[in-house]
């Protein structure tokens, strides 16, 4: 029972982690809560669904194309709604982000209606049983894909030139630009990668729960942010850890406390973490400059 809950938690948590990465990368570089991120996740799920049902693409191709589409979308949102406000008060950018989120949500409602739509299942339902737990082939695939994406991202950030430039920009934007880093290019890349990961999470959740709808991004969007704060916002390993912990806590809460308070658990954890360690589990304390 316990092992089974743990596995379910890790599966849910790995999708939260993918969403959280998008938040944390963007926040790390431009200090903005990208409220439209949940909607990018939703659009990713819809794109994947449409590619698989109407264009009969195989799952890997649909996943990849959904990620590319979402990346373009994230970059567009940044260009239209955030870039012109980079020197404005923080609150203005936040409202603009909220505006973008409301716009995208209603665009989806207009395009696809409010009715939930079925997500095709690309895999045969094959379940592996052991004495402690059972796991389906689908669940294994979700875990493998999300872990591959996370490992890939870590490698990219640590070992490539662009990754290094991203870290430098997150540390100090002005100094990085003096060192010859094209800040706008880095921000674009950050949004592209974050959005692609969000879309991947959307498609994975789609094949897992077999349904998509225009409002599906709201709660996971908020929880992805909770996961990012839990791990320490701005920290990439933190987002992964925060996502997994949040998923496990949520599943455990449903199993041992009450399923009605499922969504409240995430926010209760958030408030507790904020009160006792606002910098998150692996984040560095944020010193206030006088």
């Amino acid at each position: 029972m316990f092992v089974q809950q743990l596995i379910n938690g890790i599966i849910l948590g790995s999708t939260y982690a993918l969403i959280a990465l998008g938040y944390t990368m963007v926040y790390g570089i431009i200090e903005l809560i990208n409220f439209a991120h949940g909607e990018i996740y939703m659009f990713g799920a819809f794109t994947g669904m449409i590619l698989m049902t109407r264009f009969n693409l195989p799952f890997p191709a649909a996943l990849l194309l959904a990620m590319v589409t979402a990346a373009l979308m994230g970059v567009t949102v940044e260009y239209v709604a955030y870039r012109p406000l980079r020197r404005s008060p923080r609150l203005a950018a936040l409202i603009s982000a909220i505006g973008a989120s409301i716009f995208l949500q209603n665009l989806a409602l207009l395009l696809w209606g409010s009715r939930p739509q079925n997500f095709p299942s690309p895999f045969k339902i094959k379940v592996y049983q052991s004495s402690f737990f059972s796991i389906s082939q689908l669940e294994i695939i979700i875990l493998v894909i999300s872990f591959l994406l996370m490992v890939g991202l870590s490698f990219f950030i640590k070992n490539t030139r662009t990754g290094k430039a991203m870290r430098a920009t997150a540390q100090d934007r002005d100094t990085a630009s003096l060192m010859g880093i094209n800040i706008n290019r880095i921000i674009t890349i950050t949004f592209a990668i974050g959005s692609a990961l969000g879309a991947a999470a959307g498609v994975l959740v789609g094949i897992y729960f077999r349904t998509v709808n225009p409002m599906m991004g709201v709660m996971p969007g908020l929880k992805g942010f909770v996961a990012a704060v839990l791990g320490g916002i701005g920290s990439i390993p933190g987002a992964m850890l925060g996502g997994l912990l949040l998923g496990i806590a949520e599943v455990a809460g449903v199993a041992y406390i009450s399923s009605q308070y499922r969504d409240a658990i995430a926010f209760a954890i958030l408030i507790i973490v904020l009160l006792f360690k606002p910098s998150g589990l692996v984040g560095l304390p944020d010193q206030e400059k006088v």
Binding site: V80, A81, P84, L85, S88, P89, A92, A93, I95, S96, I98, G99, A100, S101, I102, F103, L104, Q105, N106, L107, L109, L110
Partner: peptide
Amino acid sequence: ADLRLLIYGIVLIIMMRVRPQ
């Protein structure tokens, strides 16, 4: 009605661009 909130979102973005205060 269908476009209502769509426009609401656009108004917020434009407003913040033109007059953030």
